[in-house]
Deep mutational scan, measured.
Amino acid sequence: MLDDRARMEAAKKEKVEQILAEFQLQEEDLKKVMRRMQKEMDRGLRLETHEEASVKMLPTYVRSTPEGSEVGDFLSLDLGGTNFRVMLVKVGEGEEGQWSVKTKHQMYSIPEDAMTGTAEMLFDYISECISDFLDKHQMKHKKLPLGFTFSFPVRHEDIDKGILLNWTKGFKASGAEGNNVVGLLRDAIKRRGDFEMDVVAMVNDTVATMISCYYEDHQCEVGMIVGTGCNACYMEEMQNVELVEGDEGRMCVNTEWGAFGDSGELDEFLLEYDRLVDESSANPGQQLYEKLIGGKYMGELVRLVLLRLVDENLLFHGEASEQLRTRGAFETRFVSQVESDTGDRKQIYNILSTLGLRPSTTDCDIVRRACESVSTRAAHMCSAGLAGVINRMRESRSEDVMRITVGVDGSVYKLHPSFKERFHASVRRLTPSCEITFIESEEGSGRGAALVSAVACKKACMLGQ
Protein backbone atom coordinates (compact mmCIF):
# COMPACT_ATOMS: atom_id res chain seq x y z
CA MET A 1 0.00 0.00 0.00
CA LEU A 2 2.80 2.35 1.01
CA ASP A 3 4.72 1.38 -2.10
CA ASP A 4 1.70 2.20 -4.26
CA ARG A 5 1.32 5.61 -2.65
CA ALA A 6 5.04 6.33 -3.00
CA ARG A 7 4.89 5.30 -6.66
CA MET A 8 1.89 7.59 -7.24
CA GLU A 9 3.68 10.52 -5.57
CA ALA A 10 6.79 9.86 -7.68
CA ALA A 11 4.69 9.69 -10.88
CA LYS A 12 2.92 12.93 -9.91
CA LYS A 13 6.24 14.72 -9.31
CA GLU A 14 7.54 13.46 -12.66
CA LYS A 15 4.51 14.92 -14.48
CA VAL A 16 5.03 18.20 -12.61
CA GLU A 17 8.67 18.29 -13.75
CA GLN A 18 7.56 17.74 -17.36
CA ILE A 19 5.30 20.80 -17.13
CA LEU A 20 7.96 22.92 -15.39
CA ALA A 21 10.63 21.88 -17.92
CA GLU A 22 9.22 24.58 -20.24
CA PHE A 23 10.93 27.17 -18.04
CA GLN A 24 14.40 25.70 -18.51
CA LEU A 25 16.67 27.65 -20.83
CA GLN A 26 19.70 25.94 -22.34
CA GLU A 27 22.99 27.83 -22.70
CA GLU A 28 22.41 28.02 -26.47
CA ASP A 29 19.03 29.70 -25.81
CA LEU A 30 20.70 32.29 -23.59
CA LYS A 31 23.39 32.97 -26.18
CA LYS A 32 20.64 33.51 -28.75
CA VAL A 33 18.88 36.01 -26.44
CA MET A 34 22.23 37.72 -25.77
CA ARG A 35 23.05 38.10 -29.48
CA ARG A 36 19.58 39.45 -30.25
CA MET A 37 19.86 41.91 -27.35
CA GLN A 38 23.22 43.14 -28.72
CA LYS A 39 21.70 43.59 -32.18
CA GLU A 40 18.83 45.66 -30.74
CA MET A 41 21.27 47.71 -28.63
CA ASP A 42 23.18 48.51 -31.79
CA ARG A 43 19.97 49.55 -33.56
CA GLY A 44 19.03 51.77 -30.61
CA LEU A 45 22.38 53.60 -30.71
CA ARG A 46 22.30 54.26 -34.46
CA LEU A 47 20.54 57.33 -35.76
CA GLU A 48 18.90 55.64 -38.75
CA THR A 49 17.42 52.71 -36.79
CA HIS A 50 16.82 54.31 -33.36
CA GLU A 51 13.13 55.04 -33.92
CA GLU A 52 12.12 51.44 -34.65
CA ALA A 53 14.55 49.76 -32.22
CA SER A 54 12.85 48.08 -29.26
CA VAL A 55 15.86 48.79 -26.99
CA LYS A 56 16.03 52.59 -27.04
CA MET A 57 19.59 53.12 -25.68
CA LEU A 58 18.80 56.61 -24.38
CA PRO A 59 21.76 58.97 -23.83
CA THR A 60 21.75 60.33 -20.25
CA TYR A 61 24.22 63.23 -20.66
CA VAL A 62 26.10 61.83 -17.67
CA ARG A 63 29.68 61.87 -18.93
CA SER A 64 31.74 62.26 -15.77
CA THR A 65 31.83 60.19 -12.66
CA PRO A 66 32.33 61.77 -9.20
CA GLU A 67 35.98 62.48 -8.43
CA GLY A 68 35.64 63.12 -4.73
CA SER A 69 36.00 66.88 -4.75
CA GLU A 70 32.36 68.01 -4.81
CA VAL A 71 31.10 69.21 -1.44
CA GLY A 72 27.86 70.69 -0.12
CA ASP A 73 24.25 69.87 0.76
CA PHE A 74 22.02 68.39 -1.93
CA LEU A 75 18.40 67.37 -1.99
CA SER A 76 17.52 64.20 -3.82
CA LEU A 77 14.13 62.90 -5.00
CA ASP A 78 13.46 59.34 -6.07
CA LEU A 79 10.32 58.46 -8.03
CA GLY A 80 10.16 55.03 -9.62
CA GLY A 81 7.29 53.13 -8.07
CA THR A 82 4.46 53.53 -5.58
CA ASN A 83 6.82 54.97 -2.98
CA PHE A 84 8.51 58.33 -3.35
CA ARG A 85 11.63 59.24 -1.38
CA VAL A 86 13.06 62.61 -0.39
CA MET A 87 16.67 62.59 0.80
CA LEU A 88 19.09 65.17 2.17
CA VAL A 89 22.64 64.29 1.15
CA LYS A 90 25.66 65.97 2.73
CA VAL A 91 28.76 65.56 0.58
CA GLY A 92 31.97 66.60 2.31
CA GLU A 93 35.52 65.85 3.38
CA GLY A 94 35.55 63.00 5.87
CA GLU A 95 38.29 61.93 8.25
CA GLU A 96 41.80 61.63 6.80
CA GLY A 97 40.76 63.63 3.76
CA GLN A 98 38.42 60.91 2.51
CA TRP A 99 35.21 61.81 0.79
CA SER A 100 32.10 61.36 2.92
CA VAL A 101 28.45 61.14 1.96
CA LYS A 102 25.86 61.36 4.74
CA THR A 103 22.13 60.96 4.17
CA LYS A 104 18.78 61.51 5.89
CA HIS A 105 15.64 60.43 4.11
CA GLN A 106 11.90 59.98 4.34
CA MET A 107 9.52 57.80 2.33
CA TYR A 108 6.10 58.98 1.16
CA SER A 109 3.59 56.70 -0.53
CA ILE A 110 1.94 57.99 -3.69
CA PRO A 111 -1.85 57.86 -3.61
CA GLU A 112 -3.60 56.08 -6.48
CA ASP A 113 -5.34 59.28 -7.65
CA ALA A 114 -1.97 61.05 -8.02
CA MET A 115 -0.55 58.12 -10.03
CA THR A 116 -3.50 57.94 -12.41
CA GLY A 117 -4.85 61.53 -12.35
CA THR A 118 -3.15 64.47 -14.05
CA ALA A 119 0.54 65.36 -14.20
CA GLU A 120 -0.28 68.53 -12.24
CA MET A 121 -1.81 66.48 -9.40
CA LEU A 122 1.21 64.15 -9.31
CA PHE A 123 3.84 66.90 -9.26
CA ASP A 124 1.84 69.03 -6.80
CA TYR A 125 1.85 66.03 -4.46
CA ILE A 126 5.62 65.61 -4.95
CA SER A 127 6.28 69.28 -4.13
CA GLU A 128 4.03 68.95 -1.06
CA CYS A 129 6.25 66.06 0.13
CA ILE A 130 9.41 68.15 -0.45
CA SER A 131 7.86 71.01 1.55
CA ASP A 132 7.02 68.64 4.41
CA PHE A 133 10.58 67.23 4.40
CA LEU A 134 12.19 70.71 4.42
CA ASP A 135 9.94 71.74 7.34
CA LYS A 136 11.00 68.69 9.35
CA HIS A 137 14.68 69.47 8.77
CA GLN A 138 14.28 73.27 9.12
CA MET A 139 15.78 73.90 5.69
CA LYS A 140 13.05 75.95 3.99
CA HIS A 141 15.32 79.01 3.98
CA LYS A 142 18.05 77.31 1.90
CA LYS A 143 17.98 77.08 -1.89
CA LEU A 144 19.49 73.63 -2.41
CA PRO A 145 20.64 71.97 -5.63
CA LEU A 146 18.27 69.08 -6.37
CA GLY A 147 18.92 65.77 -8.10
CA PHE A 148 15.88 63.87 -9.35
CA THR A 149 15.90 60.10 -9.87
CA PHE A 150 13.06 59.44 -12.30
CA SER A 151 12.82 55.80 -13.29
CA PHE A 152 10.77 55.91 -16.47
CA PRO A 153 11.82 56.07 -20.14
CA VAL A 154 13.03 59.62 -20.84
CA ARG A 155 14.67 61.15 -23.90
CA HIS A 156 17.26 63.55 -22.48
CA GLU A 157 18.13 66.79 -24.20
CA ASP A 158 20.53 67.69 -21.40
CA ILE A 159 21.33 66.57 -17.87
CA ASP A 160 18.44 68.70 -16.54
CA LYS A 161 16.00 68.33 -19.41
CA GLY A 162 14.23 65.13 -20.39
CA ILE A 163 11.01 64.28 -22.21
CA LEU A 164 8.90 61.45 -20.75
CA LEU A 165 8.39 58.91 -23.56
CA ASN A 166 5.84 56.73 -21.78
CA TRP A 167 4.77 55.77 -18.28
CA THR A 168 5.41 52.21 -17.03
CA LYS A 169 4.81 50.33 -13.74
CA GLY A 170 1.15 51.29 -13.37
CA PHE A 171 1.58 55.10 -13.65
CA LYS A 172 -0.86 56.84 -15.98
CA ALA A 173 -0.86 60.55 -14.98
CA SER A 174 -2.17 62.42 -18.03
CA GLY A 175 -0.35 65.39 -19.54
CA ALA A 176 3.15 64.14 -18.66
CA GLU A 177 4.06 62.01 -21.68
CA GLY A 178 5.82 64.13 -24.31
CA ASN A 179 6.68 66.82 -21.76
CA ASN A 180 9.86 67.88 -19.95
CA VAL A 181 9.71 66.20 -16.54
CA VAL A 182 12.05 68.71 -14.88
CA GLY A 183 9.80 71.50 -16.18
CA LEU A 184 6.75 69.83 -14.60
CA LEU A 185 8.60 69.64 -11.27
CA ARG A 186 9.82 73.26 -11.45
CA ASP A 187 6.27 74.45 -12.26
CA ALA A 188 4.84 72.58 -9.27
CA ILE A 189 7.49 74.07 -6.93
CA LYS A 190 6.66 77.53 -8.31
CA ARG A 191 2.92 76.97 -7.77
CA ARG A 192 3.53 76.20 -4.08
CA GLY A 193 5.78 79.20 -3.62
CA ASP A 194 6.91 78.31 -0.08
CA PHE A 195 10.45 77.12 -0.96
CA GLU A 196 13.01 77.45 -3.76
CA MET A 197 14.94 74.65 -5.44
CA ASP A 198 17.56 74.50 -8.14
CA VAL A 199 16.89 71.32 -10.16
CA VAL A 200 20.33 70.55 -11.60
CA ALA A 201 20.12 66.93 -12.75
CA MET A 202 17.64 64.21 -13.59
CA VAL A 203 18.78 60.60 -13.80
CA ASN A 204 17.32 57.13 -14.16
CA ASP A 205 17.57 54.75 -11.16
CA THR A 206 20.08 52.55 -13.02
CA VAL A 207 22.35 55.58 -13.55
CA ALA A 208 21.97 56.64 -9.92
CA THR A 209 22.88 53.10 -8.83
CA MET A 210 25.97 53.04 -11.05
CA ILE A 211 27.19 56.42 -9.78
CA SER A 212 26.50 55.49 -6.16
CA CYS A 213 28.50 52.26 -6.55
CA TYR A 214 31.30 54.07 -8.41
CA TYR A 215 31.85 55.90 -5.13
CA GLU A 216 32.73 52.48 -3.59
CA ASP A 217 34.57 51.03 -6.60
CA HIS A 218 35.98 53.07 -9.49
CA GLN A 219 35.64 50.14 -11.90
CA CYS A 220 31.84 50.38 -11.67
CA GLU A 221 30.65 51.24 -15.18
CA VAL A 222 27.35 49.34 -15.27
CA GLY A 223 24.22 49.96 -13.18
CA MET A 224 21.34 47.51 -13.01
CA ILE A 225 17.96 47.31 -11.28
CA VAL A 226 16.11 44.05 -10.70
CA GLY A 227 13.09 45.06 -8.65
CA THR A 228 9.51 45.86 -9.66
CA GLY A 229 10.94 46.28 -13.15
CA CYS A 230 14.30 45.50 -14.74
CA ASN A 231 16.72 47.80 -16.55
CA ALA A 232 20.43 48.57 -17.00
CA CYS A 233 22.80 51.38 -17.99
CA TYR A 234 26.52 51.41 -18.84
CA MET A 235 29.33 53.69 -20.03
CA GLU A 236 29.38 53.61 -23.85
CA GLU A 237 32.06 55.05 -26.16
CA MET A 238 30.83 58.47 -27.36
CA GLN A 239 31.68 57.60 -30.97
CA ASN A 240 28.94 54.92 -30.82
CA VAL A 241 26.27 57.25 -29.38
CA GLU A 242 24.99 58.68 -32.66
CA LEU A 243 22.13 60.60 -31.04
CA VAL A 244 24.61 62.99 -29.38
CA GLU A 245 27.31 64.98 -31.17
CA GLY A 246 30.95 64.41 -30.26
CA ASP A 247 33.28 61.41 -30.33
CA GLU A 248 35.48 61.96 -27.28
CA GLY A 249 35.23 59.96 -24.08
CA ARG A 250 32.22 58.02 -22.82
CA MET A 251 28.60 58.69 -21.92
CA CYS A 252 26.27 56.69 -19.74
CA VAL A 253 23.50 55.11 -21.82
CA ASN A 254 20.18 54.01 -20.28
CA THR A 255 19.36 50.88 -22.28
CA GLU A 256 15.63 50.66 -21.35
CA TRP A 257 16.09 46.96 -22.12
CA GLY A 258 12.76 46.07 -20.48
CA ALA A 259 11.16 46.72 -23.88
CA PHE A 260 13.33 44.09 -25.59
CA GLY A 261 11.00 41.59 -27.24
CA ASP A 262 8.39 44.17 -28.23
CA SER A 263 9.29 43.53 -31.90
CA GLY A 264 9.06 39.74 -31.61
CA GLU A 265 12.65 38.97 -30.52
CA LEU A 266 11.45 36.81 -27.62
CA ASP A 267 8.41 35.16 -29.21
CA GLU A 268 9.92 31.66 -29.32
CA PHE A 269 10.63 31.80 -25.58
CA LEU A 270 7.25 33.11 -24.39
CA LEU A 271 5.03 30.55 -22.67
CA GLU A 272 1.25 30.54 -22.29
CA TYR A 273 1.66 31.97 -18.76
CA ASP A 274 3.68 34.90 -20.16
CA ARG A 275 0.99 35.67 -22.71
CA LEU A 276 -1.69 35.67 -19.99
CA VAL A 277 0.36 38.00 -17.76
CA ASP A 278 0.96 40.32 -20.71
CA GLU A 279 -2.71 40.39 -21.78
CA SER A 280 -3.92 41.35 -18.30
CA SER A 281 -1.18 43.99 -17.74
CA ALA A 282 -1.55 47.78 -18.01
CA ASN A 283 0.62 47.76 -21.18
CA PRO A 284 -0.08 44.65 -23.34
CA GLY A 285 2.59 43.91 -25.93
CA GLN A 286 5.12 46.18 -24.22
CA GLN A 287 8.04 45.60 -21.81
CA LEU A 288 8.02 41.86 -22.61
CA TYR A 289 11.59 41.19 -21.40
CA GLU A 290 10.83 43.00 -18.13
CA LYS A 291 7.71 40.84 -17.69
CA LEU A 292 9.90 37.70 -17.67
CA ILE A 293 12.09 39.10 -14.88
CA GLY A 294 10.52 41.90 -12.82
CA GLY A 295 8.97 41.52 -9.39
CA LYS A 296 5.76 43.12 -10.62
CA TYR A 297 5.05 39.93 -12.58
CA MET A 298 6.91 37.03 -10.93
CA GLY A 299 4.26 36.12 -8.35
CA GLU A 300 1.50 36.23 -10.95
CA LEU A 301 3.47 33.88 -13.24
CA VAL A 302 3.78 31.40 -10.36
CA ARG A 303 0.04 31.67 -9.64
CA LEU A 304 -0.79 30.79 -13.26
CA VAL A 305 1.58 27.81 -13.14
CA LEU A 306 -0.09 26.58 -9.94
CA LEU A 307 -3.53 26.84 -11.58
CA ARG A 308 -2.28 24.76 -14.52
CA LEU A 309 -1.03 22.09 -12.09
CA VAL A 310 -4.41 22.14 -10.30
CA ASP A 311 -6.20 21.72 -13.64
CA GLU A 312 -3.96 18.73 -14.41
CA ASN A 313 -4.96 17.25 -11.04
CA LEU A 314 -1.36 17.38 -9.82
CA LEU A 315 -1.85 19.87 -6.97
CA PHE A 316 -4.31 20.44 -4.09
CA HIS A 317 -6.39 17.40 -5.16
CA GLY A 318 -7.34 19.28 -8.31
CA GLU A 319 -9.14 22.08 -6.44
CA ALA A 320 -8.03 25.71 -6.24
CA SER A 321 -9.32 28.14 -3.60
CA GLU A 322 -11.14 31.33 -4.54
CA GLN A 323 -8.05 33.32 -3.49
CA LEU A 324 -5.73 31.32 -5.74
CA ARG A 325 -8.05 32.04 -8.65
CA THR A 326 -7.76 35.80 -7.96
CA ARG A 327 -5.30 37.77 -10.09
CA GLY A 328 -2.37 39.11 -8.07
CA ALA A 329 -3.12 36.95 -5.01
CA PHE A 330 0.22 35.13 -5.12
CA GLU A 331 2.58 38.01 -4.36
CA THR A 332 6.19 38.08 -5.49
CA ARG A 333 7.37 38.21 -1.87
CA PHE A 334 5.73 34.78 -1.46
CA VAL A 335 8.12 33.43 -4.11
CA SER A 336 11.09 34.56 -2.00
CA GLN A 337 9.52 33.22 1.19
CA VAL A 338 8.69 29.82 -0.34
CA GLU A 339 12.26 29.44 -1.61
CA SER A 340 13.63 30.55 1.78
CA ASP A 341 11.84 27.67 3.52
CA THR A 342 14.37 25.67 5.54
CA GLY A 343 12.98 22.26 4.65
CA ASP A 344 10.31 21.81 7.34
CA ARG A 345 7.80 23.35 4.86
CA LYS A 346 6.25 25.49 7.64
CA GLN A 347 6.71 28.74 5.76
CA ILE A 348 5.22 27.27 2.57
CA TYR A 349 2.30 25.78 4.49
CA ASN A 350 1.56 29.13 6.17
CA ILE A 351 1.58 31.06 2.89
CA LEU A 352 -0.73 28.56 1.20
CA SER A 353 -3.03 28.59 4.26
CA THR A 354 -3.48 32.36 3.92
CA LEU A 355 -4.67 31.63 0.36
CA GLY A 356 -7.37 29.31 1.69
CA LEU A 357 -5.54 26.07 0.89
CA ARG A 358 -4.73 23.01 3.01
CA PRO A 359 -1.64 21.62 1.32
CA SER A 360 -0.08 18.19 1.76
CA THR A 361 3.69 17.78 2.10
CA THR A 362 3.88 16.92 -1.61
CA ASP A 363 1.83 20.03 -2.47
CA CYS A 364 4.35 22.17 -0.57
CA ASP A 365 7.24 20.58 -2.48
CA ILE A 366 5.51 21.12 -5.83
CA VAL A 367 4.78 24.80 -5.04
CA ARG A 368 8.46 25.26 -4.19
CA ARG A 369 9.49 23.72 -7.53
CA ALA A 370 7.08 26.04 -9.37
CA CYS A 371 8.62 29.07 -7.63
CA GLU A 372 12.16 27.86 -8.38
CA SER A 373 11.33 27.32 -12.05
CA VAL A 374 9.93 30.83 -12.55
CA SER A 375 12.63 32.65 -10.57
CA THR A 376 15.49 30.66 -12.13
CA ARG A 377 14.25 31.49 -15.63
CA ALA A 378 14.09 35.16 -14.56
CA ALA A 379 17.71 35.06 -13.33
CA HIS A 380 18.90 33.35 -16.52
CA MET A 381 16.98 35.68 -18.86
CA CYS A 382 18.40 38.66 -16.96
CA SER A 383 21.92 37.21 -17.24
CA ALA A 384 21.65 37.08 -21.05
CA GLY A 385 20.93 40.82 -21.14
CA LEU A 386 23.79 41.78 -18.86
CA ALA A 387 26.21 39.44 -20.65
CA GLY A 388 25.22 41.16 -23.90
CA VAL A 389 26.09 44.57 -22.43
CA ILE A 390 29.40 43.46 -20.90
CA ASN A 391 30.62 41.53 -23.96
CA ARG A 392 29.77 44.55 -26.09
CA MET A 393 31.82 46.84 -23.81
CA ARG A 394 34.82 44.48 -23.96
CA GLU A 395 34.69 44.28 -27.77
CA SER A 396 34.40 48.04 -28.26
CA ARG A 397 37.37 48.57 -25.91
CA SER A 398 39.40 45.80 -27.62
CA GLU A 399 40.41 44.32 -24.27
CA ASP A 400 41.49 40.67 -24.08
CA VAL A 401 40.27 40.38 -20.51
CA MET A 402 38.05 43.10 -19.11
CA ARG A 403 37.70 43.75 -15.40
CA ILE A 404 34.43 45.46 -14.57
CA THR A 405 32.16 46.13 -11.63
CA VAL A 406 28.36 46.09 -11.85
CA GLY A 407 26.33 48.04 -9.29
CA VAL A 408 22.95 46.44 -8.59
CA ASP A 409 19.82 47.46 -6.71
CA GLY A 410 16.24 46.23 -6.52
CA SER A 411 14.08 44.03 -4.31
CA VAL A 412 14.25 40.83 -6.41
CA TYR A 413 18.06 40.93 -6.50
CA LYS A 414 18.42 41.84 -2.83
CA LEU A 415 15.63 39.85 -1.17
CA HIS A 416 15.23 36.63 -3.15
CA PRO A 417 17.35 33.90 -1.48
CA SER A 418 18.91 32.43 -4.65
CA PHE A 419 18.36 34.90 -7.50
CA LYS A 420 21.76 36.56 -7.31
CA GLU A 421 23.75 33.30 -7.12
CA ARG A 422 21.95 31.84 -10.15
CA PHE A 423 22.25 35.15 -11.98
CA HIS A 424 25.98 35.65 -11.24
CA ALA A 425 26.87 32.08 -12.26
CA SER A 426 24.98 32.40 -15.55
CA VAL A 427 26.49 35.83 -16.40
CA ARG A 428 29.99 34.47 -15.79
CA ARG A 429 29.35 31.46 -18.05
CA LEU A 430 28.29 33.83 -20.84
CA THR A 431 31.24 36.25 -20.41
CA PRO A 432 34.34 34.00 -20.37
CA SER A 433 36.80 36.84 -21.08
CA CYS A 434 35.57 39.14 -18.32
CA GLU A 435 36.25 39.37 -14.60
CA ILE A 436 33.07 40.74 -13.06
CA THR A 437 32.53 42.07 -9.55
CA PHE A 438 28.96 42.68 -8.36
CA ILE A 439 28.25 45.21 -5.62
CA GLU A 440 24.93 46.08 -4.03
CA SER A 441 24.05 49.71 -3.90
CA GLU A 442 23.17 51.18 -0.51
CA GLU A 443 20.46 53.86 -0.83
CA GLY A 444 21.63 53.89 -4.43
CA SER A 445 19.00 55.96 -6.16
CA GLY A 446 19.03 58.90 -3.78
CA ARG A 447 22.74 59.05 -3.14
CA GLY A 448 23.55 58.56 -6.81
CA ALA A 449 21.24 61.39 -7.91
CA ALA A 450 22.89 63.70 -5.37
CA LEU A 451 26.37 62.74 -6.60
CA VAL A 452 25.33 63.40 -10.21
CA SER A 453 24.04 66.80 -9.01
CA ALA A 454 27.38 67.41 -7.29
CA VAL A 455 29.20 66.73 -10.57
CA ALA A 456 26.77 69.01 -12.45
CA CYS A 457 27.23 71.80 -9.88
CA LYS A 458 31.00 71.49 -10.01
CA LYS A 459 30.92 71.67 -13.81
CA ALA A 460 28.64 74.72 -13.72
CA CYS A 461 31.07 76.44 -11.32
CA MET A 462 34.03 75.58 -13.56
CA LEU A 463 32.18 76.97 -16.58
CA GLY A 464 31.40 80.09 -14.57
CA GLN A 465 27.63 79.64 -14.89
Rank of each mutant, 00 (worst) to 15 (best):
A201Y: 01
M87V: 03
Y297T: 11
I351H: 02
R191C: 03
G175H: 04
L357T: 04
G223P: 00
G295I: 07
L309E: 00
R5M: 08
M115K: 12
M139Y: 09
K169V: 13
A456E: 07
V374K: 00
Y273T: 14
I110Y: 11
K420T: 06
G299C: 05
E372G: 02
S69Y: 10
D247Q: 04
T118I: 14
K12N: 11
M121L: 13
G81L: 15
C364K: 01
E435Y: 13
G175Y: 04
K420F: 13
G328N: 13
T405G: 03
G407P: 01
E48S: 15
L324W: 06
R403N: 12
I225S: 02
S441V: 08
D124E: 06
V154A: 05
Q286F: 14
R186M: 09
Q98I: 13
A370L: 05
V338K: 01
L324M: 04
D409M: 14
E242K: 01
L77I: 07
Y297R: 14
S441D: 08
V101L: 09
Q239P: 09
C213L: 08
R358V: 10
M202F: 06
M393L: 13
S151L: 10
E312H: 12
N283L: 15
N391D: 11
R308I: 03
R369P: 00
V452Q: 04
F260M: 08
Y214R: 04
G285R: 14
L304D: 06
G261E: 03
E221R: 05
T362H: 05
K420I: 06
I110Q: 15
V253G: 00
R36F: 08
H141R: 03
G285M: 13
N313Y: 06
R250F: 12
E268C: 09
F23V: 07
T49I: 03
S151Y: 05
D409H: 07
G249K: 05
L185F: 06
Y297V: 15
R35I: 15
V455M: 14
R325I: 12
G170S: 14
E96C: 13
M402A: 10
P153L: 13
Y234T: 06
P66V: 06
M34N: 06
K39D: 11
V182S: 09
G147I: 03
I211R: 00
K140T: 06
E95C: 09
N313A: 09
G446F: 14
E237N: 02
V427T: 08
F260H: 02
L386S: 06
P153S: 11
E242R: 01
V408S: 06
Q239A: 01
K459C: 13
L292D: 07
A259T: 14
A449R: 09
C213R: 11
V16S: 08
G175W: 05
R333C: 13
D198P: 02
G170W: 10
S453T: 12
A449K: 07
I390Q: 00
V241D: 00
C461E: 13
M197I: 10
D198T: 01
F260K: 00
E112F: 04
I439L: 11
S109N: 10
A378T: 11
R46Y: 09
V401S: 10
V71R: 03
M381H: 12
K31S: 10
Y234S: 01
E312C: 14
Y413A: 08
E40W: 09
E421Y: 14
M402Y: 10
L2M: 02
A425D: 10
H317K: 01
D247W: 03
V374R: 00
R394A: 14
Y234K: 00
T116W: 09
R275F: 15
F148N: 02
L276T: 15
A449V: 10
E319I: 13
L144W: 12
S433F: 08
K420C: 11
E236W: 00
D198W: 00
E421N: 13
N83E: 08
G183C: 09
F419Y: 06
K142L: 11
L352Y: 02
I390L: 11
G318S: 13
Q138A: 08
K143E: 01
A379S: 08
A329H: 07
E245G: 01
I19R: 09
Y349A: 04
A173D: 04
H50T: 07
V71L: 11
L324K: 00
G162F: 14
L463N: 15
K291E: 08
E272H: 05
F84Q: 03
D124C: 06
D73A: 01
A6M: 10
K291L: 12
A11V: 14
G407K: 10
E331D: 12
I163M: 14
F171E: 15
E272Q: 03
D135T: 07
A454F: 13
D262C: 13
Q138D: 06
S76F: 03
R394P: 01
L88R: 02
S280G: 13
V452H: 07
T354R: 09
C220S: 09
T332C: 13
V338L: 01
Q347F: 08
Q106T: 05
E256S: 13
L309S: 02
L146W: 09
E248N: 07
Y289M: 15
V389D: 00
T332F: 11
N179M: 05
A188C: 04
K143Q: 08
Q287G: 14
Q286P: 08
P417Y: 11
V101I: 10
F148Y: 07
Q138L: 11
I159Q: 14
L307R: 05
R303D: 01
A320Y: 06
K32G: 04
N391H: 06
D187I: 06
A11M: 15
E256C: 15
E421G: 11
R5H: 14
R428Y: 14
V89N: 03
L25I: 15
V367L: 05
R327E: 04
K142M: 09
T49S: 08
S418W: 15
G81H: 15
I366V: 06
S340V: 02
S281C: 11
H218E: 09
G246V: 03
F195L: 04
C220R: 00
G147K: 06
S398Y: 11
E339H: 04
D78K: 06
K346M: 07
I390S: 09
L88P: 00
K169C: 15
G223F: 06
V374E: 01
D198C: 01
E196A: 08
F171N: 08
D278W: 10
S336V: 09
A6Q: 15
E157P: 14
R327H: 13
T116P: 10
C364R: 02
T342H: 04
G261S: 03
I110M: 11
L2V: 05
G318T: 04
L415T: 09
A201W: 01
D274A: 01
A460P: 11
M8C: 15
I163C: 13
Q239W: 09
H50W: 08
D78N: 13
A384Y: 08
E272L: 05
G72M: 00
K296T: 12
C371F: 02
M197C: 06
H416C: 12
S174A: 03
P145Q: 01
G448L: 09
A370Q: 00
D205F: 06
